[in-house]
């Protein structure tokens, strides 16, 4: 075998795709030819360094947390704010905020009802969430637990979301007036609040510390406030 032929086999050899017969031929040439021996050795050393060196970088601290927060912007913003309102006792205001949000959702994209479409739902809600602000810092574990409960498929919040969607569907088909839908939505939301408060009261841990946040963001006008 001549050098020229040998060199044409280098890549197949390095890819591990050389037939046993040709591998033997190349091996024999390699033993005799210093130049090819050197060229192959360089290729192998380079491959070894690229393959075996440790990575000098790692993903930054908190990468996964930030990513998860991005994936569920709605959860991190409106769900977070809602909980503040729940704790602050502004039940009607909370109901109005959520009601408005879902009216908005209804006219653009309906939030996904299937659990598997969670990302879609988050995106849809995020696009209409009232007065979007920068994501608050990722919640502590107590808040997270609370969230898990709320996000569970059969949680009061999910039940309420489904009911609200049904209400809105009925409205769209001309069955009910907007005012009726809105009243019903608020009543159902109050129901949810009751259950949520019950659940927090039952929980062994104290409610997480909350910023005095409801004042930080102006609420949309609530028709019920005038009553």
């Amino acid at each position: 075998m001549r050098c020229e032929q040998a060199r044409q086999l280098f890549d197949a050899y390095l890819d591990g795709e050389l037939s046993p017969a040709l591998a033997t031929e190349l091996g024999a040439h390699r033993l005799r030819c210093a130049e090819c021996r050197r060229a192959l050795a360089l290729l192998e050393v380079a491959g070894h360094i690229v393959g075996a060196d440790a990575d000098p970088v790692r993903p930054p601290e908190g990468f996964t947390d930030r990513l998860l927060a991005c994936m569920e912007p709605s959860r991190a913003t409106w769900s977070h704010r809602l909980r503040r309102l729940v704790y602050a006792g502004s039940a009607l205001a909370a109901a109005a905020v959520v009601g408005l949000a879902f009216l908005g959702v209804f006219d653009t994209h309906r939030p996904g009802q299937v659990a598997g479409k969670k990302v879609e739902r988050s995106v849809a809600s995020a696009s209409v969430a009232p007065a979007p602000v920068a994501n608050p810092p990722v919640a502590d574990s107590a808040i997270d637990e609370f969230d898990e409960e709320f996000d569970a498929p059969d949680s009061p919040l999910q039940t309420w979301i489904e009911r609200t969607q049904a209400n809105l569907e009925a409205k769209r088909q001309g069955g009910e007036s907007l005012q009726e839908v809105f009243d019903l939505t608020i009543l159902q939301w109050l129901d949810v609040l009751e259950q949520a408060k019950q659940a927090t009261a039952d929980a062994p841990t104290a409610p997480p510390a909350l910023d005095p946040a409801p004042t930080a963001r102006p609420l949309p006008p609530t028709p019920s406030e005038d009553d």
């Binding site: 970088v57 790692r58 993903p59 990468f63 996964t64 990513l67 998860l68 994936m71």
Partner: peptide
């Protein structure tokens, strides 16, 4: 989701 990210993030990031 967290588990899947944690399994792959180091290799993908590098």
């Amino acid at each position: 989701v967290r588990e899947l990210v944690d399994r792959h993030k180091e290799r993908l990031f590098a």
